[in-house]
Simulated scan of single mutants.
Amino acid sequence: MSDRQLTEIAAGFTYTEGPRWREGRLWFVDFYTHSVNVVNADGSVERVCTVDHQPSGLGWLPDGRMLVVSMKDRKILRRETDGSLVEHADISAHCRGYANDMVVAANGQAYVGEFGFDLMGGADHEHGVVVLVDTDGTSRVAADGLSFPNGMCISPDGKTLYVNELFGNRISRFDIASDGTLGHREDFASFEDLGDEPNVEKRLAACTIAPDGQALDAEGAIWIADCVNQRAVRLGEGGVVLDEVSTAPLGVFAVALGGDDGRTLFLSVAPDFDESRRSAAREAKVLATTIDVPHAGRP
């Protein structure tokens, strides 16, 4: 386990998620203050906008307008040049649970995961989908049968989508066709098929990894936020562990690669992911450390 020094980038939040490095600044959301935030070059943190129904994944269209997932009403919002938020897409017809993380391709198409079931309400596990949102706001299911599809990345050539399955003990990979649709699911890293076990606690107990957010590097390895094991892990093809960074005693729930040379690993950390506890406290942070292999792909 790496003993790299961790630096505090932002603190005093409820539950930070969706870190993204863009144009020299770190962007992230905070679930229970409903805020999208940016860390400026001088270290100050600025609230960019408020998403009433809880923000999650972030991305940008080719013209620079930001997209943000609005989780609880299952919509994608678009931030216009005047700072206003408008509806970009309503994906509620495709979602059995909350909308979740998102990655936006170079052409503006967005891939959005969804819970698949009512996690915070204590429901049994059900498999979820990845929704493809076209630039005109129309949407369709691009992949199904995924166990809580979460963090996603797109390869530098735009031809491969990687998807973390939080309760699936695996990272999946899909070929991206020229129209944005996805091919058959393949394993990038799989540690054991957990099947249709309905109990979330039993699924987590059986997991070797619980991959939340992810980031792709220039050697084709994937950093994951291993959210129940208090660590970020760099995984190679087949699931070989190449590096680890401990965040104990805090859990880590999202990661991003950025910084001027792409070698800063940003980590969204908090004591746990329980909605009632996180919304009542201000214990979440964004931390950072330096790694060896720089960022690649999207986001």
Rank of each mutant, 00 (worst) to 15 (best):
K72S: 11
W60V: 09
G43S: 14
Y98F: 10
M66S: 07
D82F: 07
A106K: 09
R78M: 11
M71L: 08
S92R: 13
V68G: 06
A89Y: 02
S56R: 07
P62Y: 09
H88V: 00
L77Y: 04
V69G: 01
A99P: 02
T81W: 10
A89G: 11
W60H: 13
E87P: 04
K72W: 13
L67R: 03
S44H: 12
V104Q: 00
E46W: 05
A41H: 03
R47W: 01
A105D: 10
I76W: 00
R47A: 08
A41V: 02
E46I: 04
D42M: 09
I91W: 10
A106P: 00
Q54K: 12
V86L: 01
E46V: 12
V45Q: 11
P62V: 10
S92W: 06
V48L: 15
V103M: 06
D73A: 03
A105H: 08
K75F: 02
T81I: 12
L85C: 09
W60P: 11
R47H: 03
A99R: 00
A41I: 00
A99H: 00
Q54G: 00
N40H: 14
G59M: 12
P55I: 03
G59Y: 11
G43T: 11
G59R: 07
I76T: 01
Q54L: 14
Q54M: 11
D42N: 15
H53R: 15
C95N: 08
K75M: 13
H94A: 06
L58I: 15
A93I: 05
G83C: 13
G59W: 07
Y98H: 10
M102W: 09
A105K: 00
S84R: 15
H53D: 15
V48K: 13
R96L: 14
H53T: 14
G64C: 11
K72Q: 14
A89D: 07
P55M: 05
D52C: 03
L77S: 06
K75W: 06
W60S: 10
G57F: 08
R96P: 01
G83Y: 13
K72I: 04
E87T: 15
